[in-house]
Amino acid sequence: MSETPAIATRALSKTYKDVKALDNVGLSLAPNRIYGLLGRNGAGKTTLMSILTGQNFADHGTAEIFGHAPFEHDPTLARLCFIRESQKYPDDFKVFQAFHAAALFFGNWEEELAQDLIRAFNLPVKRRIKKLSRGQLSAVGVIIGMASRADITFFDEPYLGLDAVARQIFYDRLVEDFAQHPRTIVLSSHLIDEVANLLEHVIVIDQGRIIIDAEAEELQGAAVTVTGGAQKVEEFIAGYPVIHRDALGSLSSISIRARLSEEQRDRARAQGLELTPVSLQQLVVRSTLNSQKNQEQTTERQAIK
């Protein structure tokens, strides 16, 4: 893989007053893949994306897009598209005028796709953007992102206010268009279950730190919940890293990070233990909670010192 990464960051840090928005972030994203940038609200997703698109500045570290620092570099910026979740539009703009502007700046703009999506989302193009509902506003962002066909497209929580049908339209069209026109897509989301199957690679950020940076297939089936009699469950999970424990009377339900072999599964079944897969969403939630617990413990230790 000597190919220039689409996105590369080294030791990227950014602090707002007393909040660490980004803490020593090092990433390398290969071109033409779909990435998931997951994490809670306020974890640092938007800050990271706005630094990557030259809209914001890091305190330390470097960010490169196809080997170039994006800041004020028009040829590099022209390859990016980043519509924020809270994107502002000129007050006097009508919907079609925003698309008109986007067609001006994005060299690969695909008007047919835009029109198709406008119909699918049932978007009133002659209405002022100011007057749109939250969902319609999200749809404008999604359409610009999709039709821009930019080399790197960032979708920042693109589904806010969109109903289930509209979200499905978005996911369907994304898969369809990506198959025809592969490009680098960074999908920032906290609705993880909905996007899990689209992702090739998963990056989880929490309190500005990258806590997971792994191929999606490494995460699928990488954890399992074992449920059954407390004694038997404890015996079965001995030696595996535990990510979560639940207990109900003598019943125990413990999630462990493990990829079980067929033999192990058979053994569990024979012992009357129930095995259920841990979804990506659960895995991320558990990892996030654990990382926060660790963080608090470290802070406490430091406070004691």
Partner: peptide, 18 residues
């Protein structure tokens, strides 16, 4: 107005500040 409203939009259009 040219700045407060259009600048954030121009950023989204991947335009440099210059």
């Amino acid at each position: 107005q040219a700045l407060t409203l259009t600048f954030p939009f121009a950023m989204a259009m991947s335009v440099s500040r210059r």
